[in-house]
Design a protein around this nucleic acid. Sequence first.
DNA 1: AGTGTTCATCGAACCGTTTCGACACTTAAC
DNA 2: GTTAAGTGTCGAAACGGTTCGATGAACACT
Lengths: 337, 337
Amino acid sequence: MVKITDVARHAGVSPSTVSYALSGKRPISEETRQRVEESIRRLGYRPHAGARALASSRSNVLALVVPLRAGIHVPVVMQFAVSVVTTARRYDHDVLLLTQEEGEEGLRRVADTALVDALIVMDVQLHDPRLPLLRALERPSVMIGFPASSDGLTCIDLDFKAAGEACVEHLARLGHRVVALVGSPPEVYVRQTAFAQRVVQGFTAAADRNGLASAVHPCEASPAAARAVAEQLLREQPALTGVVVHNEAILEPLVDAFEQLGLRVPGDLSVTAICPDELAESLRVPVTSIALPSAEVGTRAVELLMKKLGGSTAVPEATLLPPRMTERASAARRAIA
Amino acid sequence: MVKITDVARHAGVSPSTVSYALSGKRPISEETRQRVEESIRRLGYRPHAGARALASSRSNVLALVVPLRAGIHVPVVMQFAVSVVTTARRYDHDVLLLTQEEGEEGLRRVADTALVDALIVMDVQLHDPRLPLLRALERPSVMIGFPASSDGLTCIDLDFKAAGEACVEHLARLGHRVVALVGSPPEVYVRQTAFAQRVVQGFTAAADRNGLASAVHPCEASPAAARAVAEQLLREQPALTGVVVHNEAILEPLVDAFEQLGLRVPGDLSVTAICPDELAESLRVPVTSIALPSAEVGTRAVELLMKKLGGSTAVPEATLLPPRMTERASAARRAIA
DNA sequence: AGTGTTCATCGAACCGTTTCGACACTTAAC
DNA sequence: GTTAAGTGTCGAAACGGTTCGATGAACACT
């Protein structure tokens, strides 16, 4: 293995000069830098990650904790992870993958052993048991999602409340007067993941504000459940013409169920959703939707971390990404009966 | 930060003793070990990962390279990744996440900087450009999938050829005489990913062996393409009664298309698939399938790596997991016309 | 000519472990 | 009763970088 002293000898300088030439932390003459770089190339030198971490107390590795649980749309998680890795690389960092399963002990482990410099935690719950730990940790972290109190933490996510509102406002503009929200599986609400509740808040607030009749229905992630909800909706809200869906898994079966019950989309029923663009586009009837910006969240999360690692104190505690709606075929002006 | 010398002082021993008590690489008296462990607990000591890696030339980190490209079923990748992480943890290792995008340079980087001890590479192609690199690297690796020649490498995957055969054999046993394979998108074949071709080989061989009429159709990952293939099949093989599907994305739309064309499944048409159990189970008509054992592949891949890291030379170059079929509702005995 | 700056580089200490050789002390063997 | 073979522990030397203070050279300003 070729080490920094080999490079130094080959270039006729001291090891520290090589180090500075590489890091740029002290001025090095253009000529010397050239020579060092040439030697590095010639010898195929690569700094030893462990040695570097030891000496600099920076591992240049970020931890990413991904959720495993049911009710979470896997492609979204994956896209997010990829975006984190890609962005981290732009800042010369790597990403260590942890599963939720590892729990608090896992976080403490990678942080305390200095295996990672900072952490990204997904799927944060309202009263997440990891919150106190993350606050106490000597390493910066960013959370995807919002807990009950984000004091002293850095959080980022789509503004789900605004997303819920936007869906309703859109339907209201199209003339719909009776709307329903088909939401996440009940367990998501029970475990108090903030985003599901925020959608409900936004949905309800906007419906009230616009004087619409409205109802909210959680829904399991199965086609059968989707069908059941569809029937229930028609029974309980016969005048229903607008539906907001916040549940990737049942978007397609739900629309199918409506059509099988004799309702055309968007002829009789307009549908808007909060889901990945990919999904919204892939359906038989492309769905007007608010995108789940997983890639952007990933990028922004890393950027926030880098800012914190850079010592900046001016990192915002909360970052709410504004919803972006794409109109597709599933929502149309209400037919005048 | 509390370090090993602090622990040593607190326990009244030398640092090396603490190290040996921890690693077990030399005998330490029961009494001393107790004392050391107590001190560690008291002080909350965690060995510094970088220092450890430097001194031992072992980082205890594995690299996992995940594919990004189209035509790859994301949940399978994710499940695999999770299984890798979980298994790695059992061996006291962590997992660094790399994307295909990083390419050969990425592999070289993490290997040469000693950031990782070993590598797992997914989605290997027949003539993968990374093969020479992996052979040359001083660190062990395991590939998921099989290249044209696996000499000097360690590969593991489902035995796709046997899986293709098993699907046909099953249909043959049920009395079907005319069968078709609906495969992966054309680009998967073009880029010469071995597993797709192996399914075709197995399918064809078993069909010939059983004297069945057979045809093979690649298929894009869209509902429209599924429908088109369904129509084409009926046109070209009017006597068709058995279909093997090897394409997660279109399994559901394909079955739907058949039914809309007036064919009952399994009444008129029997379907078997090679896909994740989860998917096979979730359809309206649960599909008889060969499981894609992503979790097992992940576990086994890590175990193989650990064996190699342990210095074992008796690590098999090729590991083919035998197909496991689960019978569900979609395949039945051929109706006698 | 002397003093003060700035720039480029060097030398040495340090980062926190692991590991190797040595040593003292038991125990077993002949 | 010496020799041989373990046991359990210690001290010191790595491991391969980074970083801080010092130094020398070049230059400008009194």
